[in-house]
Design a protein around this nucleic acid. Sequence first.
RNA 1: GCGGAUAUGGCGUAAUUGGUAGCCGCGUUAGACUUAGGAUCUAAUGGUGCAAGCCGUGGGGGUUCGAGUCCCCCUAUCCGCACCA
Length: 936
Amino acid sequence: MSDYNFQEIESRWQSYWRQQGIYKSHNGGDKPHFYVLDMFPYPSGAGLHVGHPLGYIASDIFARYKRLQGFNVLHPMGYDAYGLPAEQYAIQTGQHPAVTTEKNIARYREQLDKIGFSFDWSREVRTCDPAYYKWTQWTFIQLFNHYYDVTINKARPIADLVSQLENGSWVEGLSKPWSQMSESERQQYLMDYRLAYLADIPVNWCPQLGTVLANDEVVGGLSVRGGYPVERKLMRQWSLRISAYAQRLVDGLDDVDWTDSLKEIQRNWIGRSEGAAVLFPLAEDSSRQFEIFTTRPDTIFGVTFMVLCPEHEMIDSITTADHRREVEQYVTWAKNRSERERQAEVKKVSGVFTGAYAVNPLSGEQIPIYVSDYVLSGYGTGAIMAVPAHDSRDFAFARHFNLPIRQVVAPSLSETSDPATWAESLDSKQGIVVNSGFITGMTVKDAMRSVIAKVEELHIGHKTVNFRLRDAIFSRQRYWGEPFPVYYKDNIPYTIPEQCLPLELPAIKDFKPTSSGEPPLGHAECWAWDERNQRVVETSKIDGKTVFPLELSTMPGFAGSSGYYLRYMDAHNDSQYFGTDAVSYWQHVDLYVGGAEHGTGHLIYARFWNKFLYDIGMAVCQEPFQKLINQGMIQGRSNFVYRDKEDNNLFVSKNIEGRANRTVPIHVDINIVDNDVLDIEKFKAWRPEFKDARFELEDGKYVCGYEVEKMSKSMFNVQNPDDLVARYGADTLRLYEMFLGPVEQAKPWDTNGIEGVHRFLKKLWKLYDGANLSGQAGGDAPSKAELKVLHQTIKKITDDIERFSFNTSVSTFMVCCNELTSLKCTHRDVLQPLAVLIAPFAPHIAEEFWHAMGNETSVCDAQWPRYDESCLEEDAFAYPVSFNGKMRFSLVLPVTATAQEAEKAVLEAPEAQKWLDGKLPKKVIFVPKKIINVVI
RNA sequence: GCGGAUAUGGCGUAAUUGGUAGCCGCGUUAGACUUAGGAUCUAAUGGUGCAAGCCGUGGGGGUUCGAGUCCCCCUAUCCGCACCA
């Protein structure tokens, strides 16, 4: 009898796996393939906490399971090492990001290795590695060199557009013939079509971070990283024309196996809405008109005013002299408001009258034109027709400025009322159109169609679709990111030749961001492009003739993470992003596991990136991630001690009466608390100020309070996986993280139950330790009871894994182990398949058992056991039910029962006889495969 | 405001997908073995009742022989988006 020495076992098998290269996967072969991917981590300075491995453990279980099922499994890992978090950490610790990143990666790797993952590290990618970001830059060049052809819904080479311009078959937006345009004019024109383009656009500028941010990096006017205020600023920036793919990004959601909630998050973010664009002429000059977008063309007869956004280009020219001062004041005020102010004061109505009037093209009425910042410049055309009766924002505006409100939709033709008496607008689309000329009496839906048809007939509008999704701002005024492979000649951007990639990030001393927006790369001594010799040279050599300045911004964090899953397929390819063979073999990620917080960021960008690569013939699937599981966030569970308000050395246990009024709670390190009981000696040693602490105990113990909070150092509730691995072993940690609850559910971390899981492994150890594992199978066959336990377990575990219900799997193993122990099972034919079943969950102990049974190869290459239906037969049982005073009972039969068998069973089964007591049943109701109801 | 989810013992959770609610674990209680126990083992543990029993899956209705599960209406909590026309 030996003890379960998990430390020895785990380190032994981990080095065995490493030496044997067990987890190295190959492209190709006869086996079916399966690609399991985790969202790769930012190697932050804090190291892993117990929340990180949750998803990794789940995906590892699935990857190992698939492998045991005979699949060729790709299960890689890498690091998202470029970007803001890595750089912020470096700045805070006063070190160079290259140094901290290297250090953090080493620490992550060490922590990951201890948990026993089956990652194929030979395919590791790091986004900050030139051999990797070469391909990020390469993709950027392709984006720059392509445009989106809306007629075929696909990206095409910009050269195609140029040749259409040259032969005159494309004239859209041309101010003069292509042949007469200068190089600069041509490039400017093409810039409006390129999928990666440079433009002056209002951006989210964050002075504290010294960079612009994408929309998904800003929440409520504050930066996601650090929570600093963000301003609206007009800057010349690189952007990706992701909006061109908006429709395909919506459509693609129907083809993937994601949760409804995540699909909904993406749909909301893309924000598709159907409606109409309509031209409204000015009353003073009907040759001048402006376009509005509406989703409610049916309410066009209810328009009582128009609103332009403060940035609208026509404001200046339409404002009448007597309103000019007021309008200019308002526009200036509105433009200077910060994002945060604007969002915080959404409820406040503001705006001014321009003095100008427009004409409703269908009713001929004159309607006043206002300016207000509730109309946004970035959406639609930045101008609206206001229908106060049927839009809550227009309603609020009309009430504030005392503008008329006219009802044009009602529950029925006769059910109209005076809008002056309304408390709110009638936004519902259920109803009949009233007071509306030729559409009066129609349903809202029909009216929409009719109005669109009418404006199309009059050539003053058309049906259209609008998206909320904006193009992604792609420049960051930061150091730690991929350099743009771009240089400027006469202020026109050109990409450096592909064969010169990677354009390596120069080492510079002062990499800190500046609040003025000057990128740190401006400090680089060697950051100019020698066009003739095709190489990077000293900045001082810039002459504007052959040596030109290089782009100083770098790419954002999402650049490197948008295509990494493709690179894993062929991680060492020097000549291509990834080879055709590799991508045709693996196709796409079959299972992707990661946090839902990437729903509007990474998961949108990666889908866009992939669709573009698909368009240019690189990727073979439109959607990169087939099935996606969002692991729930692990919150912290903080512990508290209660210090007496009067006596600072006195601590009162939680449940002592009157404690609440006389104490203040103080966070206490969860590592010196066990099951909410404080280790008093450790507490005294924890900090000098508690050296002389005294306690009011309950039942001889000090009981701590707890609360669920964010996991953070300042709350002393960070649980480090290494501590748990050292104390209980990796197998226990793996099982316990799964046991905690469904993978997808958010839950507080709580170590209180880990003992139970550890106890299970010890029991399992005993079960195998007591058995004659090395002996031959022969002799007695396993008992019927033993086989039943085994096959039930196989069936349940297989089902559980298929539906990602790993918490129930752990319970199933516990039941199985308890039952086999009480059956005193020592049979190899039972214990060997069981070892394979448990291998995905607890690979170290499974490997130990497997080898103890005399197997030469790793348990990773065993075969997943199949269950035998015949071993699963359930016993019949019956229970009483009363209904309308009649005596009835229900008889539950084995799943294989048929109608005829059921009739027979009622008469024959001993369980039924007990209830019938010799009488014949009055009525037998049979529910196929399940149950028989018998009325006595 | 719009959208998505969730609600079961003291706690984390489970329920063959419409079939005896509470598996497994924690915690608690009692006992055994022990010099000792933060080790191990055994038993009990939804509420109420001496008991047979009765009541129990956030609340209220409904469908059904049968509802934690399906339908409708509330309530609470969490998450996402938010002046998106």
